[in-house]
Computed example of a mutant assay.
Amino acid sequence: MKQPCVYILASKPHGTLYIGVTSNIAARIYQHKANLVTGFSQRYSVHRLVYIELHQEMYAAIIREKQLKRWKRAWKVRLIEEKNPEWQDLYPELL
C-alpha cells in the first residue's frame, strides 16, 4: 500500500530513535530490518517500528518529519507512548 507517512524507529524501548518518511511503509521498514539502509539506523541497530503517522500528501509528511526531528526527545517519547505505550514493534501489523 502506498501512502505517505512519517515513522519512528527505536533500537529498544526508550532507546535510540530514528525518524523517517516514506510512501511505502512496509517496504521501507523491511529495508531497515534487513540492514539495507546504510547510515544511522544500520549503525545503531534502530529497527523497531514504534510510531506511524499517515498523511494525505507527501509534502505534508515531509514537513511533519522535519518538525518531529526538531522536537526535544521527551516530546518524541511522549508522542510514541500516547499510541504505543509498550513500545511494541508495529511492523507485523503492516503485513
Rank of each mutant, 00 (worst) to 15 (best):
G20F: 03
Y59A: 13
E93G: 09
Q42K: 15
F40V: 08
A27R: 15
R28E: 05
V37F: 00
Y44V: 06
A61N: 07
L95M: 12
T22Y: 13
R78K: 14
K33Y: 03
I29S: 05
A61T: 07
Y7E: 07
H32T: 05
T22P: 06
S45K: 12
A60Q: 15
L54N: 12
A10F: 01
E65N: 06
K83M: 10
R73T: 11
I80E: 03
V37G: 01
E57V: 03
Q42T: 05
L49T: 01
P13F: 03
K2R: 14
W75I: 09
Q67E: 13
A10R: 02
R48D: 06
K66T: 07
I63C: 13
E93N: 12
E53H: 10
I8M: 14
L36Q: 15
E82T: 06
E81I: 01
R70A: 10
Q31H: 09
N84C: 10
R78S: 08
Q31S: 10
A60G: 05
V50Q: 07
E86D: 13
A34L: 09
W87A: 03
R43H: 08
Y91R: 04
S45C: 05
I8G: 00
Y18E: 03
A61F: 05
A34K: 14
I8T: 06
V77W: 06
